[in-house]
Design a protein around this nucleic acid. Structure first.
Length: 458
RNA sequence: GUGGAUGUAGCUCAGUCGGUUAGAGCGCUAGUUUGUGGAUCUAGAGGUCGAGGGUUCGAUCCCCUCCAUUCACCCCA
């Protein structure tokens, strides 16, 4: 049989992993710098924990796990004959692969509420699974890198997330734009047009504005049964162009009758006030009234990050998040507000790859290769190798006394920057020959100078 | 779930208006007297032309079905 892996999943080669580890390490170091604590949760959750948290579409995209054993014996013949997959699912599946990291986190917080000191800041870097059709930048298994603060309403958390995003992308050397909006503003808009129950349809439609244009957005709202009055009223808002302040002024006028709308505007203004004194290195942030975001547990600020590099062809969001006021409520712990962001590691990898932003040395996992000159010289080389390793340098010796050509080709293929030759000549003089694989230069030196040389380089 | 595109060597692809031993580049392996790689040269290995069926004297090529990959929609990191 031909070996294969499931659609939308990938093997990561050593070259891939060196790059991915570099990315995970930089994100993790930023998370830690900002005071977030590590957490991991199981790959699978109870299906009931996940269902209903991501909207109707989300439920369909959850990977369900078939019950073990003779899972059909419990199902009645009637139920089977109905062929209602949705209903049947709950009888034959009670576990599912996690769909994101936020809902498992909420579940964790509720289960461990008595041990946790609030506000609780945690980061979590783990794979998630979605039964989507794969396409460019979309995988069925991918890694999210989440940082969340739960147990405080403070808008300083939103500011911190902006700074965290900046910190990460500055380290990666990637310029990004952060789009900011607030779900309360979207609720307010729906409210003033008497369309509160259509809020999700409206937000989903206007989220597509930059893709399909205002006419199609209006059309989509129309097919969803949104009133003409509301569609007309929304139009000027959608096509409005201006500074963040001008957008806010417009919203203030429009939403003056909506309490929740006003509150959203106030939150947004506060966040912008907090952010204004700071100079950000790699992010540009701006208010985007059309930003809606799909996950329907968001209630306050929402963020989305896209690349801000003209050369990048990849324009989907690489990072997103927001505030959820009551995610733990459904698990029995009401009134616990949280806010967080999620870095899409796989998409960021794709972008860094496209723009060639991975540091040149991520692929050289070894500093030194010792040439194997055969039985007589092995003990001497081994001794040097041990000392070099003890000094914190990554090194290895070629296992066979193969031809020089072969050993050097190996060093080349592995992208090892330096090769040590310690054969009979060097052994006699208690020295070694160091060759720079890039320039081809080689020079005799003592062990101590070698260690110093490599250290200074790293 | 809906629609389009593509499956030929390890990778990227050419090709035959249906005709005998199916090609290139890259990669891989090997090569000039026993301690020197990346550029060049020489040689070599490697393909039931995605799978099954049909049309035909004859199919990698035409037709059908299936499978896989991929892009877009929906939705999303």
């Amino acid at each position: 049989m031909k070996p294969s892996i499931p659609k939308g999943t990938r093997d990561f080669t050593p070259e891939d992993m060196l790059k991915r580890n570099f990315l995970f390490d930089t994100i993790k170091s930023s998370f830690q710098r900002f005071g977030y604590l590590p957490l991991e949760t199981p790959s699978m959750e109870n299906l009931s924990t996940l269902m209903g948290k991501y909207g109707e579409e989300g439920d369909k995209l959850i990977f369900k796990i078939l019950n073990s054993g003779d899972f059909l014996s419990e199902v009645s013949a009637d139920e089977l004959s109905l062929k209602n997959s949705k209903k049947l699912t709950s009888s034959i599946s009670e576990k599912a692969l996690r769909y994101d990291l936020t809902v498992p986190f909420a579940r964790y917080v509720v289960m461990h509420q008595n041990e946790i000191t609030f506000p609780f800041k945690r980061y979590q870097i783990q794979p998630v699974w979605r039964a989507d059709r794969p396409q460019k930048g979309r995988y069925r298994e991918f890694f999210q890198c989440d940082a969340d603060v739960i147990g405080t309403n403070s808008l300083l958390c939103e500011l911190e997330l902006l700074q965290l995003i900046d910190d990460v992308f500055a380290k990666l050397g990637l310029n990004v734009v952060v789009l900011i909006n607030n779900r309360k503003i979207l609720s307010g808009i729906a409210e003033v047009f008497n369309e509160s129950e259509k809020i999700i349809d409206i937000t989903v439609a206007i989220d597509k504005l930059d893709k399909i244009g205002p006419e199609k957005v209006a059309e989509e709202m129309r097919t969803k049964g949104v009133s003409e009055k509301a569609i007309d009223g929304l139009k000027p808002l959608l096509v409005f162009e201006g500074s963040d302040q001008e957008k806010i002024d417009l919203l203030k006028k429009l939403l003056q009758s909506s309490e929740v709308g006003i509150q959203g505007i106030t939150e947004l203004e506060t966040l912008l006030d907090y952010a204004s004194p700071f100079t950000f290195k790699n992010i540009e942030y701006k208010v985007d009234i059309t930003l809606a975001r799909g996950l329907n547990y968001y209630t306050g600020a929402i963020f989305e990050v896209k690349t801000n590099e003209p050369k990048a062809t990849f324009n989907s969001s690489i990072c997103g998040g927001g505030r959820y006021d009551d995610l733990t409520g459904i698990f029995g712990l009401p009134g616990m507000s949280g806010v967080g962001i999620s870095f899409g590691a796989d998409r960021i990898c794709d972008v860094l790859e496209e723009l060639n932003l991975f540091p040149a040395n991520v692929e050289s996992s070894l500093d030194l290769l010792f040439i194997n000159f055969g039985e007589d010289d092995i003990p001497y080389s081994l001794q040097l190798l041990n000392k070099v390793r003890a000094a914190g340098i990554n090194a290895e010796m070629y296992p066979d006394a193969a031809k020089m050509k072969k050993q050097f080709s190996y060093a080349d293929a592995r992208k090892i920057p330096f090769v040590v030759m310690a054969g009979s000549e060097e052994r006699a003089a208690s020295t070694l020959m160091l060759k720079d694989m890039k320039t081809g230069d080689q020079q005799k030196m003592e062990l101590n100078s070698l260690i110093e040389f490599i250290r200074n380089r790293n």
